[in-house]
Write a protein that binds this DNA or RNA. Sequence first.
RNA 1: GGCCCCAUCGUCUAACGGUUAGGACGAAUCCUUCUCAAGGAUUAAAUCGGAGUUCGAUUCUCCGUGGGGUCACCA
Length: 484
Amino acid sequence: MEDSKKVVTRFAPSPTGFQHIGGIRTALFAYLWARKNDGTFILRIEDTDKARSVEGSIEHLQESLSWVGIDWEYGPDKPGPFGSCIQSERLDTYIEWAQKLVEKGLAYPDPYTPEEVEAFRQKAQEEKRAFLFRDHRPETFGAWDGKTALRFKVSELKRYEWHDEARGALSAGPEALDDFILIKADGYPTYNLAHIVDDYNMGVTHIFRSDEWISSVPRFLSLYDAFEIEHPVFVTLPPILRSDRTKKLGKRDGAKDVLDYRKEGYLPEAMINYLALVGWNPGTDQEIFSLQEMIEQFAPGRIQKSGAVANEEKLDWINREHIKLLSSEAFWQHAYPFMPPWIDKEAHGAALQKIERLLRDRIEKFSDIETLFAAGEFDYFFNEPAVDAGMLVWKTLKNEADGLEKTRGYLTHAASLLTEVADKDWNIETLKEILMPYAEQEGKGNVLWPLRVSLSGKEKSPDPFELMSLLGKEVTMKRIAPNQ
RNA sequence: GGCCCCAUCGUCUAACGGUUAGGACGAAUCCUUCUCAAGGAUUAAAUCGGAGUUCGAUUCUCCGUGGGGUCACCA
C-alpha cells in the first residue's frame, strides 16, 4: 500500500429512488475533498436491501450527479481494480470477510427468529430501555451454515474515543456497543459489514457521511478492531433540517428530487454553490463560487457542526448571480426550453437577442420566463398589443373630461417629433434628447406613460425609450400614431 | 427512557479570550423613476439560561434548558 497516502473518497447511496439536496451535498463534499487532493472519487451503490431497491435509481442517481458536475473515477458504470462498485455484485467478498470473524469466534449464527428478536425489542421498549441484543446472546452456538443470519460478537465492552475532522473529539460508552447483524438470512450483508469491507478494499481514506451515523460509529469501531484494520478518517456533516426545524429533511417532508431543480431552471453551478454553503463556508465573505474555487477552498475542518435549514430564497439569489455570469450563448441555451412554443428560434432570433438583458434582469430561475410570458410580459416584442384606451391616460388626467383627448394630443405630438429621427440615430440616447424636453414641458407622466402603454399595452413594462429602441422606428410609429 | 450530537440576527454564517459582535439572503425605508425590473444608499434584526475560571468570556469548564439523531435481518 505505497500509495495509501492518496486520498480516496466515496459517495455510497442505496438505490431507493431519487436524491434530494442532502445526499447531493454529501456527495459534493466528498467530491471536493477528492479533487482538492488530486485523489479518487468513487460512486458505490449499496443495494444490499433487495426489498427497498427501486428500479432505475442508479441511472437517476448518475444523472443527478452528472447534472451538478460531479464525476467519478469508479462507479456502477466503471468497475475498479477492486471489482464492481455495486455491492450486490460483491457478495462473495462479504461472506469471505464474515468467515474471518467466524473463525476468530467473533461472529455467531443468530439462534432467534426475527419475531423472537422483535419480542425482545418490544419488551425493552416497554421498559424504556435501549434494546441490546447482547443481553440475549446464547452461551454456545453451532457452526454457521450461511443460511441463517450471522451476528457480530462484541468482545470488548469499552468506551470508544475517536476523532472526527468536522466534529473534533467524540466518544461513546459501552452502551453503544452491541451484537449486530453482519449477514442477513438472505445471504446479503448489512451496511455495517459491507461498507467497512468495501472502504477497506477500495482504499477509501475519508468517509463523508451525515450526522445520523454518529451513534453507530462505536459499533463500526468495534468491527474495525475485530478485523484488525485501521479506520478511514471520519468527516461528519451536519443535518439539513426542515424549515420548521422539527426534523431532519427527508423525502417525506417534500424534499425535492435534485433534478426537479433542473426542471425549474436552476443552474447546476448555482445548485452546488448553494449546497456547499449549507454547512460549510470558507471563512471569508465570498458567496459566489465556481466549482474550481470550491475545490480550492474546501476544507473539512470548516464544516459546520450544527444543523442548517436550507433556504430557497438564497438559492434563488445565488442562481441569479450565476445567471449574470452566463455568456449570451449559454443564457439562451438555458432559456429557450422555457420560451413559449410559438416563438421560433430562427424567425424571432433578432428580437430575442434584443430582449436578453431585459429577461436577465427579470428572472431568478429560467422557469420564470414561462411565468413572464404567461402574464403577457414581453409578448409586445413579438405581437401587436391590444391597447386599452382607459389605460392610456395617466392617473392625474383621469379625472378630466378631456383626458383621453389630451393624451392623444401628446401622442400625436410625440410622434411628429419622432418622425424627424433618422433610422441610424434610433437609439435610447437620441430618443431621450428628442422627447424629454417635450415630456418635461407637458408633465412626464402625461407623455411618457401613454407612450409606454401604447407600445406595450401594459401598465408595467420597461421604460418607453427602451421599448422604442428595441422595437425600431417602424413599429414604434405604427403603435404610437396608428392613424398616420 | 439509555446513549450520542448540537446551540450567534427570521435564515445561512464570521469573530488567536479583548470587535461599536462582521457579512450574505430575506424585510423595511429612501434615492433613481411615467410603471415594472435592475441598480445605489440606509435601517431594523442575534451570542438559550445559570454558575465557575479569568483583569476580561460568543469563545474555556460545569449544571440546566431547548433542539436533533440513534437504539432494524434499512441504509
